[in-house]
Amino acid sequence: MDLIGKFKKGLSKTRDILLTDVNELFSMDRKIDESLFEELEEILVMSDLGIDITMEIMEKVSKKSRKLSTADELKEVFKDELKALFPVKEETLLNDPKAKPHVIMVVGVNGTGKTTTLGKLALKYKSEGKKVLIAAADTFRAAAIEQVEIWADRASVSIVKHRAGADPAAVAFDGVEAGMARGMDVVLIDTAGRLHTQKNLMDELRKIKRSVSKRMPGAPHEVLMVLDATTGQNALSQAKLFNEAVGVTSLALTKLDGTAKGGIVAAVAKSMKAPLKYIGIGEGVEDLQEFDAEIFVDALFD
């Protein structure tokens, strides 16, 4: 199946991920008037895009709308504005021979689905024939190590773990070391969820990153921040503080299979200039998909 088809299939139950009823709003043979704009604003706010971006889009769209007469024409303008929210995706470094193993550190606040996303990534890389190792560096939350062990089992990949309460930086260090010694292609580092406002916990995260790059200069090659689609404007503050601490390089948006629109990710991607790489649209392993803004926005309007 081609990428677009696959993506649309994934979207079949989440067609309305970012914006519901948008098409409906435009397809009606409506005039461009105050009430159309008000409904548009409501839709944008309800998608958690945030008031700043909403205002920005509304302003641009309304400026351009002066030359237009029907809502249908406005649709293209609107589509372009939405696409412009997502920065261009960077090439993945996975095939860079110098970066072997490719070290990915997974971070985020509590309960966004870090471990699940990491587990799905392990399965994905494994199915691509890569040698994968997981470092269970969430030594804090009760039973977190057991959870990641179950994922390692499922994906039949290696795992490096210490006991609960151990220094996570040491686990990460050992994980990278084992990855290098055993000729792994990918090392995934699971970290404990933490609120971005807890200074000491963010310092701990910095330390994990430092110890990883100590063992392997240039690593981690990727810092994947996992965001929950139901999160509101707080995601901006999460992203900012995580970025300050460990330099987020890409984003994953989980739990998009509910009714949340996840619009905040656009604001996050825009403010950090880090691409949205994966979206989680279900419990199944195949439900972690690569994200492409172009296809995504087009699919919304089909």
């Binding site: 706010v45 929950d228 999160t231 509101g232 707080n234 509910g258 009714t259």
Partner: peptide, 15 residues
Amino acid sequence: ADAMTGQDAVNIAES
């Protein structure tokens, strides 16, 4: 419910 939930909080609670 998570305090960081956005606009969807109301849908979740309602369902």
